[in-house]
Nucleic acid binder design. Structure first.
Lengths: 183, 183
DNA sequence: TTGACTCCCATAAATTACCATGATATCCCA
DNA sequence: TGGGATATCATGGTAATTTATGGGAGTCAA
């Protein structure tokens, strides 16, 4: 069962000491980048490190939806989605539209929209998921997929597109660091 | 800030909110320079003094990523990275900026990019880490590595390149002192 | 039946845990 | 203060696990 698989990972990673886990927030940390193969059946292994980050969640799998601004698939944990939903509810109950105030436009409907286009992808016993056809098309993924950790969420890219995108990202950062320089 | 801040561009850029004077700050202190051997499998001992600085962290290991502006590897503690991510996320969640959380349109992107290029390197039972091939290539590291403490973070250099850079740095400093007049 | 999907097993390669050793450095006690 | 006993550290090798990946058998629905 997938439970066993994940449990093994967890034991391995935190072997010896049974330290209290950081249960303070639903935030998982997705770090680093991995490229995996998509097999004939559309299955991909979710990187073990990402699975470990989700090990404490009830739902053993990920929430995936197409990025609205990039040719990529966005991935988060189920707990994160729940948290967003909860906060959204609180926000509307409080009656304060902070988004309107802060960024000059309302985010009304965004969470609902994401919910509606999201896919719940469960791990199989080997920690793989099946990428829905639609999402693969959106991201241009064929037989390889790059998992990109971005902290509280991650993305799945076509390796080629990601390479180009990351190069641009790093160049932009370099430019900023150089131009701003030390104060 | 350290006196070496001329070179501390990268972390300083976003460490404004992570000041050393904070009591519960996740900032460790990395001091001094050590040169260790990289074995055939890419393993290096992290200097005991650096490990001691990270002893109180949950994750026993380091976060490493290639420097954007130097041929070196940057190293920080996991707590530092988590803190950065947490603050960034709290900001967007508390502010009701779900767009940023869901589709990642960060005004900044720095933290997310660092997350994506970072590697989580756990200590083995002897306090070693395995340097990823990619990072070694970036830094020109082959069979020896120089760990350079820089306060809240550290760097890993190829010994030759580090020696050269340090010499250049000293030359520059000497030149500046000369031109400013003798003490 | 076909096709889509889930479960289960197999395996090669990569990763990690585990044990061993020499070299320093540190401590302790007469 | 000498000098052996003890710890720590850096380093090396091997064994055992995990991981990523592939494929087959069974299920369910049209």
């Amino acid at each position: 069962m997938s439970q066993n698989c994940i449990r093994d990972v967890e034991l391995c990673r935190f072997s010896g000491s049974v330290e209290p886990e950081e249960a303070d927030s639903p935030v998982s940390s997705f770090i680093s980048t991995y490229e995996n193969k998509v097999d004939r059946k559309g299955r991909v292994s979710v990187p073990a490190a990402f699975r470990a980050a989700l090990a404490s969640e009830q739902f053993q799998g990920i929430i995936a939806y197409q990025s609205l601004i990039e040719p990529a698939i966005e991935g988060i944990g189920r707990a994160m989605l729940d948290e967003l939903n909860r906060r959204r509810l609180d926000q509307s109950l409080d009656g304060g539209d902070f988004a309107q105030t802060l960024i000059g436009r309302s985010d009304d409907g965004l969470v609902e929209t994401i919910m509606s286009i999201s896919h719940e992808l469960a791990f199989d016993s080997e920690g793989r998921i099946i990428l829905p056809q639609r999402l693969c098309e959106h991201a241009g993924i064929e037989d390889r997929a790059t998992f990109v950790g971005r902290g509280s969420r991650f993305q799945i890219w076509s390796p080629e597109r990601h390479a180009a995108r990351q190069a641009a990202e790093l160049d932009a950062l370099r430019a900023r660091l150089t131009e701003d320089g030390p104060q």
